[in-house]
């Protein structure tokens, strides 16, 4: 059985911390960082990277196109 695993890369300095990707994430992978970027925004990051399934929903709703998504299919042991 194939298991999908994903990873999200946020362009931290361009993120405006709107939180829409966090809301849209079906697996609660993403959260807003307690830290801020150069603009003073709490940027999005993978709080629970293991949960990511690479669905790209975050990327689709990101207004600033700062999200890149990667995905691999794993063979379950």
């Amino acid at each position: 059985m194939a298991k999908v695993k994903g990873a999200v890369v946020v362009d931290i300095e361009k993120c405006k911390g709107c939180n829409l990707c966090v809301v849209e994430c079906p697996t609660d992978t993403l959260a807003l960082s307690p830290n801020v970027n150069g603009k003073g925004y709490n940027y999005a990051y993978m709080e629970s990277p293991d949960a990511c399934i690479g669905c790209s929903n975050c990327g689709l709703v990101c207004p600033d196109s700062v999200i890149t998504v990667y995905k691999v299919k794993l063979q379950q042991a």
């Binding site: 993978m46 790209s56 196109s65 999200i67 998504v69 990667y70």
Partner: peptide, 16 residues
């Protein structure tokens, strides 16, 4: 699998 192993060009699913 580590995050760094997933973030590779061949695994790209969505980008700007």
């Amino acid at each position: 699998m580590e995050v760094k192993d997933i973030i590779k060009e061949e695994n790209l699913a969505y980008k700007k």
